[in-house]
């Protein structure tokens, strides 16, 4: 449910799938349409993560259903707009979820780095 005063605990939805995490990150700073999300994820990961269109819309459907994202009413200027496009933005709860997942991943990385062998390997 989309609700600005969403009292759900974001940790209930963790861990996210890597693809879902990347999609959420792509929406953190900016409202984007589908293909823009795909491109942002590819750019952000230096082409390491390429999300297929079919995969993306499965994720978007879930984000909308879970109340992590909503369709945005704001549109770009008419000369650069394609009316078939739908723009999405994160809800406050969505932002909390992506923040919680980032923290979780950071903690996991910190814990991995703390091991002696990895510390040596990563020097």
């Amino acid at each position: 449910m989309v609700n600005s005063s969403d009292t759900r605990d974001p940790r209930d939805l963790l861990p996210l799938t890597p693809a879902m995490f990347h999609v959420l990150v792509a929406l953190v700073d900016e409202e984007r349409h589908g293909y823009a999300i795909i491109k942002d994820v590819a750019t952000r990961t230096s082409g390491e993560v390429k999300i297929a269109t079919g995969t993306l819309y499965g994720i978007i459907k879930r984000l909308l259903a879970e109340g992590l994202a909503v369709e945005s009413k704001r549109r770009p200027p008419a000369d650069s707009d394609d009316d078939r496009r739908i723009y999405y933005r994160l809800t406050a709860f969505g932002k909390r979820v992506v923040a919680a997942e980032t923290e979780r991943l950071e903690a996991a990385v910190r814990s991995a780095r703390a091991t002696r062998t990895l510390r040596k390997a990563l020097v």
Partner: peptide
């Protein structure tokens, strides 16, 4: 229902891709 919600967006994305 899924088609109604997303088919047009998917078509536009695929064209660009």
């Amino acid at each position: 229902e899924f088609r109604g919600d997303f088919a047009e967006s998917i078509a536009a994305d695929l064209k660009e891709r």
